[in-house]
Design a protein around this nucleic acid. Structure first.
Lengths: 230, 230
DNA sequence: GGATGTGAACGACTTCACAGCG
DNA sequence: CGCTGTGAAGTCGTTCACATCC
C-alpha cells in the first residue's frame, strides 16, 4: 500500500474548529440523543430541573461526563440547582438538528419497513415517513398504513414531491448499493442502511449503518467473555 | 452527588490484563464483526489470501489499523503476502465466540420480530431463533414461521427446554423492563433490546441496546451538520 | 451545602515511522 | 520489494480535582 495515501473512510468532519471554545466531540453527540430521551421522560414526570448526577444515574454515566457534554450547549446549568429541563431539551434538539420535522423515504417494503412505519418512536422525535418504494411489482400501488408503495422508476419524482431528505434502506443486500445510489441521485442527503454491506456513495451523502447481525455478534461476544471469566 | 462514588454504568470489563501481550481493545472487537463480514465475502469470491490494505480499503479503515486489530489474534499474517482468509475467519469467529450456534428467544411478536425471523443474516452467523413469547393471548398458540408463540407465564420452562441463551426484546417500552427481568430470571445471559429504555439488570446479564430513533437522530445530525457547513 | 464548569492528569485509541521477514 | 508487526508519538475521550457560584 502506497505510503501516506489516506485510504481511510471519509468520516464526516465534526464542527469547524471554530473560534476557540468547548469543541463538540463526536462522543458527546452520540450521547445527546440519550440525554434527550431521558429529559423528555423527566419532563413528562413534571420535573422542572435536573442535576447532572440525576441524569447520569438514569443513564449509567458519571455526573462529570454529563456536565462536560452539556457544557458545549452553553452555560445552561445553575450552580447549586441543576439544569432546567425544558431549555435543555430545546438546546439539545437544536444542536442535533431535530428542532424541526424530517421527512423520510423507505426503500423496501418488507416486515422491517412495516415495523418502522408503526414505530411510534420516530414520530415522537419529529421524523415522518412520507414515501415507500419497492421493486416488487405486486407491491407497487398497494397501500401500507395509508402510504402508497411506489415503483423505483418514480423515485426522483416522488422524492421531490414528498420533500423527503432522509432514506431508510431495508432491501436485500444485493440490491442495497443500487437503491442507495438511486436515492442519492433523487436528492436524499442521509441514509439509514439495514443491509449488511458497506455503501459507497458521494461524500455529500451521510450514512448510518444498522447491522443487526453485527449487534447480535457483539452481544454473543459479551456473553462469551463473561462466561470465560467465570 | 457524593464524591468518589462510582455511579457509572457497569461496563463489562474486557479481558483480564493477562500476562503481557497485545491487549484486546473494545474498539477492535467492534470491528471484528465487520472484518468477518468482508472476509466471508472474499472467501465466497475464492480469494485465498488478503492483505491488510485490501481489507482496510473494503471497510474504510487504514491498513495499519487492520494489522493492529488482527495482531491480537496472533501472528496470522505472512510478511510480503498477507493473511490467509480461512484461518483468519476461524480465528475471528473463535475470538468473538461465534464458532458455535447460539439459540435465541424473542419476546414480543410484532412486525419487528417477524422481520428478524426472516432475516437471513442471523442464521448465516450461527444464530437460531428457537422461541417466541407474547403477552397477547390472541397470539399465544399461533405459529409464526413454524415457531409457536408462548405465553410469558411459560417462559422459564420454554427457555430451559429450548436451550436459548440470548434474548431479543421487541415489546413496547412500558413492558420492556419487566420482560427483561423475566428473561433474565429464566436463565437468559444476554439481551438485545429494541425498546428505547435503559434496562436495569443484574450484572451477569449483558445488554446491547438498539435504539432506532437514536440512530435516525444521529443521521439527522450528520445531515444537519453537513448542511450547516455548506 | 449542593451544584456547575473546567484545567490538568490520565487512559484509550489511532496514526506514524520503521525494523524485519519472505 | 511488498507486506506484516510494533514501539513511539499523537489525538481523542474520560476522570480527577478544585475553583466558583447560588
Amino acid at each position: 500500500m502506497s505510503r501516506r495515501r489516506r485510504n481511510a473512510a471519509r468520516e464526516s468532519k465534526l464542527p469547524p474548529p471554530e473560534d476557540g471554545e468547548p469543541r463538540l466531540s463526536r462522543a458527546s453527540v452520540g450521547r445527546f440523543s440519550l440525554y434527550l430521551r431521558h429529559l423528555q421522560q423527566f419532563a413528562r414526570e413534571g420535573l422542572p430541573t435536573v442535576s447532572s448526577g440525576q441524569l447520569g444515574l438514569a443513564l449509567g454515566k458519571t455526573d462529570v461526563q454529563v456536565r462536560k457534554d452539556l457544557a458545549y450547549l452553553g452555560h445552561l446549568g445553575q450552580a447549586g440547582v441543576g439544569y432546567q429541563v425544558q431549555p435543555l431539551i430545546s438546546a439539545l434538539r437544536h444542536t442535533l438538528g431535530i428542532d424541526r420535522e424530517w421527512k423520510v423515504a423507505v426503500a423496501g417494503v418488507g416486515n422491517l419497513a412495516r415495523a418502522l412505519l408503526r414505530y411510534r418512536g420516530f414520530g415522537a422525535q419529529g421524523f415522518r415517513i412520507v414515501a415507500l418504494f419497492d421493486a416488487d411489482a405486486a407491491k407497487v400501488g398497494q397501500s401500507v398504513d395509508g402510504l402508497a408503495v411506489h415503483a423505483p422508476a418514480d423515485m426522483t419524482q416522488v422524492i421531490a414531491d414528498s420533500g423527503a431528505e432522509l432514506g431508510i434502506i431495508t432491501v436485500p443486500s444485493e440490491a442495497a448499493q443500487g437503491v442507495a445510489e438511486a436515492l442519492a441521485a433523487a436528492g436524499i442527503h442521509g441514509l439509514m442502511n439495514f443491509a449488511p454491506v458497506v455503501l459507497r456513495l458521494p461524500a455529500h451523502v451521510s450514512v448510518i449503518n444498522v447491522d443487526l447481525a453485527i449487534q447480535l455478534e457483539q452481544l454473543a461476544f459479551l456473553v462469551h467473555l463473561a462466561a470465560s471469566e467465570r
